[in-house]
Nucleic acid binder design. Structure first.
Lengths: 134, 134, 134, 134
DNA sequence: GTGGTCTAGACCACG
DNA sequence: GTGGTCTAGACCACG
């Protein structure tokens, strides 16, 4: 497999955000690990038939979040680092994220149990550094 | 308290979406219930110092989602209805929502336990029709 | 032919609803299909001599109904999807729609046979996925 | 039973239009016939807890359509007349009405057969002057 | 060049 | 007084 990134041009989600999420998802799911090299801008642009500038933008965002490191002439690599934000800010974001998601789920008509199950399902697909549940 | 809606003009989140989320949050949290009247377009626009059209837009979106009903000359009221989408669509959206949130939480460096705790905390703040937690 | 959309500014029907109906009609009649691009907001606004915001509003409504997908920088495309509403809601709407239309037709002085013929005529102009007429 | 008119204040349909439709529906269904008296403006306003001006407006519209006749001091009566429009205009309206309804039904995902069945169901509830089916 | 968001302000429809 | 529709025009985001 060359890349794990597939763009859905039908989606109303901006292409650069699709790229960002797929990289984050691949890292969270263990398909990409520290040191792995992402495809070059040109390579990914060609494969996914998107504008190279769009790929550049996605990689820039990923670098700003600390998920990748771009090295001149060498390429773009998974940093393996976790967020550099302080605990307070991280907690703020965590709570905001989940409050949003849970509120939307409520309005979709799901119960507490439904939501917890869906969260656990999503968690199972991720590869946490220290596995703490069986 | 006149309204529960406060706008952060600094936020990168569009104003109309801030309004939408705050209404959804108030409904999910039981602060607004079926039949309750939202502030009038002009009233909220004045209070939040935003353009009336921006409020109209938020109310239109809430109506399309079935959360409020707007009545000419009367105002905008909480419908009390849940989603009219079919189960497949609702499950798709639920999974998408939570997968995104959980992946972001992972990249913030939180563990499975941290995420589950934060979800449970968010769930506790909502007012589900039939309380099912143990 | 550039666009199929023509606005009647004399009509009491709001302009944005005229646009919506003409797009729905073109899709139902097979003139627009999945993936087809609608004219850009500015292009249609110029052609139909209406304000771009009015076109935006029509496109927003069509997106909420799932008929089109709007993509930043790319344009507005026919989704090819059918309604994501649940069966109960769809039946409610179907019955409401037809009861209204049939009652109005009655008051125009038409017989059952006239109405059925007119319905069949309208049906013949649509392009259903699987043709089932005898 | 005093009146057949019940207003749903929850609905986003304007109240005066709810009144108009219910009168039309009662006439088409044979519950109201030529010469029958509608409740007085004050009576209906009180029963339905709506503004008298709203009732006046509905009655005015019904008179303009030729469905009722208002007689000073006496009240508002079903005329028993059919539309006074010429055949061409009536056919235009019939086709427009049904084209709209059928197009919306298409986008709700119903088949030709579903739509025909729903039309026949609606037709069965009406009382045509000359019964022409079994 | 494409759509997205927002402000400002006019005039109309409902009750 | 309430919301509904529309125009005009600014500035931003995506590709």
């Amino acid at each position: 497999m060359s890349t794990h990134i597939h763009i859905n041009p039908q989606s109303s989600e901006p292409i650069f955000e699709q790229i960002i999420f797929q990289v984050k998802d691949a890292v969270a799911g263990g398909k990409l690990s520290k040191g792995d090299k992402l495809p070059s801008v040109r390579e990914l642009a060609k494969e996914a038939t998107v504008n190279p500038n769009t790929v550049v933008r996605a990689y820039e965002c990923l670098e700003r979040e600390g998920i990748v490191i771009r090295r001149q002439g060498a390429g773009c690599f998974i940093s393996g680092n976790k967020s550099a934000l302080n605990l307070k800010e991280r907690k703020n974001r965590l709570n905001g994220l989940l409050k949003r998601a849970v509120t939307e789920a409520f309005h979709l008509g799901f119960s507490q149990g439904d939501i917890q199950k869906a969260v656990n399902q999503s968690l199972k697909e991720l590869r946490f550094a220290e596995k703490r549940d069986k």
